[in-house]
Design a protein around this nucleic acid. Structure first.
Lengths: 207, 207
DNA sequence: TGAATTTTGTACCAATGCGTACAATAAACG
DNA sequence: CGTTTATTGTACGCATTGGTACAAAATTCA
């Protein structure tokens, strides 16, 4: 088991770790992000994290468990990026644009190639045959759906959008827009085009 | 090279094939659909098609070429399903609903598990490292975009939708809805829920 | 200092991966 | 008939895969 990182200075007993578990997990995510679950070998993961094979196992379990932890961690990142964008007092239009800009910062990093959404690009493939991955994927999607729906319902109550607009439909469109941006980013659509797409949909939602 | 299937009765010279190339390609698509490109082995493909390894190579080239052919064939299917739904004289609302129903027939077959979109579920993963797959994915997405945009522009000219609606934005939303349905189908969302999602978005587009 | 504890690093294993060589087979051709 | 052509089926080769055994190393504790 991985030691709780809560007490960072509590002197551990044996040989000290040569790696930082959180950083290693982040780098494992990067590796999976690039080539997917099946396409990423333990050698790849070992190289990406700088950990040798046995350390990888001791820290995260086998490849499948490591992937599940990576996906779980990705969704917590996604949750905080959503909170950053939506849980504040920005007008709906600005909050949504911040939401998509945050997503694009992940999908199309300033350094390196566009890579899309980790979950959509890698978990979707495995979801059919791997119930745990499917469940985790579904849970993450639902989390985003609910966050967007909550914000849009609040906007309607606050009179930010037309009273006759259906918040559920608008939230579905907001989610769908995130998904299409994720796919297109991976397919090579330039960032400016994705931003324009987000802007026009946000315009329609806030009409 | 595969013999042109155009002249089915022209007596071929050597030992006759024990397989139908079109059926074999369709079954290879099924296999890739289930477990993705990297997750599908040549043994899997051999079992799915009923062809042994050397025949597979003679007919389709290596695994990568076979996958590219599978993806290409899938997009031609997608094109004809789009034509079926949009190139007729149905009102926009009915045409769009037919479009989504056609997609759902692929994504959530009546027999067997929901599997989502072949291209989105498998090509997206590989797109980052495989330029040919990325290009083919982008081309397929563009084809759907353009088909939907054309139909929606026509609807506006025909006065089926409000004159002040932006057809490009509505088309983007129609595409995004297809993408989100594809992802959600693979994540296990029940068909009825996906249909309801399509219906509510179509309702908004045709408002 | 020496025992206990934990991680590291090398080296290995059996299984599976993709791709191919080659003989056997089945047809048309002359 | 035998020759030619094309596909099949078996069997192989070599690299890579996921996973692990085990000794060396690095630390704490008594």
């Amino acid at each position: 088991m991985v030691q709780k990182s809560a007490s960072p200075q509590a002197k551990r007993r044996g040989r000290p770790r040569a790696y930082d578990p959180d950083a290693a997990l982040a780098q494992a995510i990067e590796a999976f992000w690039k080539t997917g679950y099946s396409g990423t070998s333990l050698d790849d993961l070992s190289a990406a994290t700088g950990m040798n094979r046995p350390s990888l196992y001791a820290a995260f379990g086998d490849k499948r468990e490591l992937y599940l932890k990576a996906l779980g961690h990705y969704w917590t990142l996604g949750g905080s990026m959503m909170t950053d964008a939506l849980d504040n007092d920005l007008p709906l239009r600005d909050a949504l644009m911040r939401f998509y800009q945050n997503a694009l910062a992940l999908y199309v990093p300033r350094t390196g190639r566009a890579r899309g959404c980790f979950a959509i690009s890698t978990a979707t493939t495995e979801a059919l045959e791997e119930p745990k991955i499917r469940a985790l994927l579904a849970r993450g999607l639902r989390g985003l759906d609910e966050g967007l729906a909550r914000r849009i319902r609040a906007a309607r109550e606050a009179g930010e959008i037309k009273a006759d607009a259906d918040p559920a439909t608008l939230a579905a469109i907001a989610s769908a827009t995130l998904h299409t941006i994720a796919i297109r980013a991976r397919a090579g659509t330039p960032r400016a085009e994705l931003e324009a797409l987000a802007r026009s949909v946000v315009g329609l939602i806030c009409a």
